[in-house]
């Protein structure tokens, strides 16, 4: 590999006419999304760190606070599996894209359906917990639960909305390969960060 850089430059002397073709090291959309996801990971890292600090500052018998409802571990565990299945379907959609954009539509729709079911079941869980008296104001325990899970829910809903629009464009054959890769990457982020949040908040 030694010396290829200078050889490359010499070769360019033969082709001096510049073109507008970009030499994309990582495709634009994918690189932009990687950077965005990096910033998002840090957002969740900040939330989890805050949670860990406040939790560690509490006396052992006050966490979770006595008299407050417990989080439904099994129910959310099932929900976590739903979300992971959604991520798997999205991955399958990415594989299918190589065979043709329309081939990718059914797995992506399945993925969106599973994702929507996840959000709906989490909403149902929230409604139950609110009914049992766990609210944002009742204790730091409740505050952090709704904050962290809610932040994830906002990301999931936003991703579902964008992916729905993207699916329409996918069906019409207007979605480019790289844009599709970038959007799938964001959904993988939403899917893969959830088990970590589940482990930290529920267990």
């Amino acid at each position: 590999m030694a010396g290829t850089m200078s050889e490359k430059r010499d070769l360019r002397l033969i082709h001096p006419a510049p073109t507008r073709e970009q030499r994309q090291i990582v495709p634009n959309e994918v690189l932009g999304m990687i950077l965005f996801i990096g910033a998002e990971v840090m957002l969740f890292a900040g939330l989890i760190s805050a949670y860990a600090v406040v939790r560690a500052g509490m006396p052992a018998d006050a966490w979770p606070p006595p008299g407050q409802p417990r989080l439904p571990i099994a129910f959310t565990g099932f929900n976590t599996l739903l979300l992971l299945a959604s991520g798997g379907a999205m991955w399958f959609g990415g594989r299918k894209f190589a065979e043709g954009a329309d081939k990718a539509v059914p797995p992506v729709l399945a993925s969106l359906g599973l994702g929507a079911a996840f959000v709906a079941l989490q909403g149902y869980e929230w409604a139950n917990l609110l009914g049992e008296g766990l609210s944002m104001q009742s204790s730091p325990y409740g505050s952090f639960f709704y904050l962290i899970v809610g932040t994830h829910a906002v990301h999931a809903v936003a991703a579902l909305l964008v992916l729905s629009v993207a699916t329409l464009r996918l069906r019409a054959g207007e979605l480019t390969e790289h844009a599709f890769t970038a959007l799938r990457a964001f959904w993988y982020f939403v899917v893969l960060i959830w088990p970590f949040l589940y482990w930290q908040v529920y267990l």
Binding site: L35, G38, M42, A45, G46
Partner: peptide, 26 residues
């Protein structure tokens, strides 16, 4: 509490290493 101090140190390490790892891997 000692656990709270430990949590501060732990999250400090976590928050510091995480971005460097991400930047490094990209």
């Amino acid at each position: 509490t000692e656990s709270n101090r430990g949590a501060f140190i732990g999250t400090t390490v976590f928050l510091t290493i995480l971005p460097l790892l991400m930047i490094g891997s990209v």
